[in-house]
């Protein structure tokens, strides 16, 4: 006995699934080359033990990093970056901190990031790091007035 319903709608379902999957693949590949990169600038001051209320949640960790210091949040930025793109923190006074995504995923499964500090477009320091995803690292530069400039960078 033949079915009253034609077979072509059943054939259409795998076709639609196949088309949808193939359509998704380029975006998946694009997602593979993108990272959410976060950069944050904090001033650590040994003469003022106050912790900025905006940093209260991570105060204990910062205290372990630099005991007997107060911490003030200067700027924090987070941006989804592709390879070769950067996110910049404006620290004021012509000072900027920049995190450049060099390699979203290298052969060792790490994210390569270049961290720069600029003063009026003149490099103050530059360091390239290969770090696991979802891990924060700090760059610490002691300043002339005894305070520390902490630049935290992480990528997911």
């Amino acid at each position: 006995m033949m079915s009253r319903f034609p077979h072509w709608p059943r054939l259409l379902v795998p076709l639609v699934v196949l088309w949808g999957t193939l359509w998704l693949l380029p975006s998946v590949r694009a997602g593979d080359k993108a990272r959410q990169v976060t950069i944050c600038a904090i001033i650590a001051d040994p003469s003022n033990q106050t912790i900025d209320p905006r940093l209260a949640a991570i105060g204990p960790q910062l205290r372990k990093l630099l005991p007997n210091h107060g911490f003030t949040l200067v700027d924090v930025k987070s941006k989804r970056l592709n390879s070769g793109q950067s996110v910049v923190c404006n620290l004021g006074g012509g000072l900027t901190a920049e995190a450049l995504l060099v390699e979203p995923l290298d052969d060792n499964g790490k994210v390569q990031i270049k961290c720069d500090l600029w003063l009026n477009s003149v490099s103050q320091f530059s360091t390239a790091v290969a770090t696991p995803p979802n891990q924060l690292f700090f760059c610490d530069q002691k300043r002339m007035n005894g305070t520390h400039l902490l630049i935290a960078v992480g990528a997911r």
Binding site: Q36, T38, C40, R54, A57, I58, Q61, L73, V76, K77, S78, N134, Q135, L136, A152, G154, R156
Partner: peptide
């Protein structure tokens, strides 16, 4: 470290 990254990302 993961918690700090999450916090800073949400703060941004």
């Amino acid at each position: 470290g993961f918690e700090m990254l999450n916090f800073l990302e949400s703060a941004a």
